[in-house]
Design a protein around this nucleic acid. Sequence first.
RNA 1: CGGGGUGUAGCGUAGCCCGGUCAUCGCGUCUGCUUUGGGAGCAGAAGGUCGCAAGUUCGAAUCUUGCCACCCCGACCA
Length: 490
Amino acid sequence: MSKGLPKRSENYSEWYNELVKKADLAENSAVRGCMIIKPYGYSIWEKMQRALDDMFKETGHSNAYFPLFIPKSFLSKEASHVEGFAKECAVITHYRLKNDPNGGGVIVDPEAKLEEELIVRPTSETVIWSTYKNWIQSYRDLPLLINQWANVVRWEMRTRIFLRTSEFLWQEGHTAHSSRKEAEEETAQMLDVYATFAEEWMAVPVIKGKKTANERFAGAEETLCIEAMMQDGKALQAGTSHFLGQNFAKAFDVKFQDKSGSLEYVWGTSWGVSTRLMGALVMAHSDDLGLVLPPKLAPIQVVIVPIFKGDEQLDQISEKINPILKELRSKGVSVKFDKDDQSRPGWKFAEYELKGVPLRVAIGMRDLESNTVEVARRDTLTKEVVSIEGISDYLVDMLDKIQANIYKKAFDFRASNTYEVNSWEEFCVKIEEGGFLLAHWDGTSETEDKIKDETKATIRCLPFDVADEPGVCVYTGKPSERRVIFARAY
RNA sequence: CGGGGUGUAGCGUAGCCCGGUCAUCGCGUCUGCUUUGGGAGCAGAAGGUCGCAAGUUCGAAUCUUGCCACCCCGACCA
C-alpha cells in the first residue's frame, strides 16, 4: 500500500480515481469501461441496496428478475426509446466459438449465427412491458409494482469508474397503474424515496426537480430527478424517476378492463439508481486523506486500535475491550477490533482514514491506567480522550453526530456554491467557478442547446421548491416564470 | 470515435531522442534482531516475457507498424 493521494485542489479527477483504487472500492478490469468492485466497495453497495430495498418493500414493491438478453425487435417498438439507446447497445450475434483452424485459440463459429440478434439490456422497459402484457388483463391486476436488481450495459464512449461504466449495477422499478394520476403519484413517491435515501443515508443533500425535454429519459413523458453537488462544484444526477404515460403500454399493447368493462391502456413508471451512487458518495464527502463515509453506510463504523507491546499487554487491553465490543454489537454498531500486530498503530490510523471509517478508538497502557480511550473522528479529524465508562453510548451518539455533520457540511458547501445570476455576463463568469446557477430560462430547447454549446452547462432540473418569480431569460431576454438550475454535470 | 499523453517487479518510477553487461531507485514482500500513542530502524534476500504481437537489425525496453488498456481534452451519456 503506497501512501499519499493526489490533492483534490490540484487534480480533482486524479484524486477521485486514485481514491477509488487506494481505498479498495474498485479497480479497472481487463475489459474497457468495466470495473471490478472489490469487497470493501461492494459492502458499501450492499448497505445501499439493503436500505433502498427496505424502502421499496415498505412502499409495496416486490422484487423479480427479468433476462439480460432482449430480442432486438423489442427495442424498436417504442420509437423514442430506440433512438435513445440504439447507439449504445451491445449486440449478441453468435452463440458458439470454435478452435481456430489456423491455430491461435478460438474464433467465432460463423455457423452459429443467431436468427434474431439479441441485445444486452441497457434498461429493461421492453422485456418487462412485453411480459406485463400477459400479466395484466383487469383493473384487479393493478397496480403492478415490481423492482429488479440487475446489471445493465451501455456502450459508453468515455467511462469513469462508478460514474459512468459500460456495465453497471442498479435497480430498476417498473410499475403499471390504472390511472394517470396514480402513476404520477408513484413517480413522485419514488423520487421522494431516492431523496430520502440520499439525504438520510448517504448524507448527500439533493435537489428534487423535473428534467427538461432535452434531458428526459427516452420513452418517458416526464422525468423527475435528484441532483447533487460534488466538491468540485459539478452536478451529479443521483437518481431518476420516470412517468411513462401510456407510451410503453401502447408499444406493447398492454390493456386492462376497467370497472365499467371498457379496455384501457395502462399507465407506467420506471425509476432507478445505480452504482453511480458510489461515485457520488466518494465525491461528496471525501478529503485528501481518503474516504469520509457516512456512518449509516460505512462497512466498519468503529475501529478499535490497541497499542501494545507483547501478548500480555494485548490480553489486558482485550479484556477491557471485549465487553465493549459485545455491547456495541448489541446496539447494531459494526465494530472492528484490530489486534493485528504486524502493522503498527500509525499505519493503521492512516489506513482507516483512507478507508473512511467514521470513528477510531485507540487504547493503550496509559488508557488502562486512567480508564480512558482516545476517540478520533474521521469527519473533523479531531481527537479526544474519553472515559471508558459508558463508552458505547458515547460512540453510538457520536456516529449520529457524524452522520448529521457530514450532511451539514455538504449542505453548506452546496449553499455557498449556489448563485442567482441575472445576466449573461454573470452567468459566463460564474459557470467557470463551478456550482449551481439559478437563472431564468425561456423554456425552449434551442436556448438550452445554445447555452450548453457556449458554456457546457446544462439545465440540471426545474426544481420543485423554487418560488414563482417572473423574470427574463438570462440568454434571450424572453419572459420566464421561475428560475431553473444550470450547472456543468458528470 | 477524433486530438494529445502514458504503459518497465505488487505499487510508484529511471533509462527510450543517441539501439550493444542498463534493466535503476523508492515503497511493499520474505528472513532475522530491535521496535510499537500518527504510515518504524538495521542487516540480508526474493521478485521482471520492459503492455501485447509482428517487423527492422548480428543485437530491441530503446527504431517501425498494428493491437490492447489507462489518463487528459472534445463529441455522446445515468
